[in-house]
């Protein structure tokens, strides 16, 4: 394991962390445009829709109703 991946499953956060490659299959459900993964905020950001979709316990919640508006 490299020093760049501190998430070794023993720090209590592993279950909540998501591997970014798993997200490549996702697009914004509203615009069908690309998403940017904000690891710190645990959000998937759609700049086009100005929405941020939350990732809760490592599960992306791809619902517009659950998304945070970037303009608020």
């Amino acid at each position: 394991m490299s020093d760049e991946s501190p998430n070794d499953g023993r720090d209590g956060t592993a279950a909540d962390s998501i591997d970014p490659k798993l997200l490549e299959i996702l697009v914004c459900p509203l615009t069908k445009g690309p998403l940017r993964y904000d690891r710190e905020a645990q959000e998937l950001v759609s700049e086009q829709a100005r929405l941020a979709y939350p990732i809760r316990e490592g599960i992306p919640i791809m619902l517009v109703d659950e998304a945070r508006s970037l303009d608020d």
Partner: peptide, 8 residues
């Protein structure tokens, strides 16, 4: 191959 840290 999709996992950065497969151990857990």
């Amino acid at each position: 191959h999709e996992l950065d840290a497969p151990e857990p």
